[in-house]
Amino acid sequence: MKLPAWLHKFASPPHVYGFAGALYPWLLGLSLVLMAVGFYGGLVLAPADYQQGDGFRIIYVHVPSAYLSTAVYALMATASAIGLIWRMKVAHAVAAAAAPIGAWFTLLALMTGAIWGKPMWGTYWQWDPRLTSELILLFIYLGYISLRGAFDELGKADRASAWLAVVGVVNLPIIHYSVIWWSSIHQGPTIKKLGSPSITMEMVWPLLLLIFAYSLFFAAILLQRLRAEILDRERYSRWVGGVVQATASPT
């Protein structure tokens, strides 16, 4: 299979390095501003829930991180597959850069979920399908990261970890449908792709804004990490020599 022409620009490491550096501060700044607005909307403007009172406000930090935990994995697995099929270095670099961010947000989703569970379910943890499959997601991320660390040669680390990422995709539908397939203590989806959300507009707009803001935040951090990954893979090429000289410290 041939690579589409427009994709070639994204396969060129120096191009991606420059473009990631230019975009990073804007994405990070915008994401932080939107997060501030979203948190204000969620903590101050949204009314208390009729069942969960003000405790429901944990939704504004729990759902966006849980969303990122699976969305980042999907992106990581897609990048890994592209890297394996077309032997594209930049795609492997994207997957490697995404993994630690995904792991952090999975951990955050688990922790905020546990704290939310205490007052609502009476327990921090249950071996429930949704909770367990999310925990497995964290282990897959950690496995991916440590597998990469086990190779001295970057190319081998890229290929081996890419296979793990691709195989681990089976966990994503399990996480997603766990609350529907099995009787779970976890509540069903708050925002449905089809049909209207199960909560009022005043409660839902901060949540949607925060999901968007977290996605921008992820994109910003991904680009910053991607630059380091690209430098690592291109250490002997001439353009990296130029970059290193341009950023040389005055000492």
Binding site: L43, G53, D54, G55, V61, W104, L108, M111, P119
Partner: peptide
């Protein structure tokens, strides 16, 4: 936070930390 302070604020604190 309507009596939920001990649950809501740690969640936000952890989020900022991450």
């Amino acid at each position: 936070m309507g009596g939920y302070a001990q649950y809501v604020w740690p969640c936000f604190g952890l989020t900022f930390a991450v």
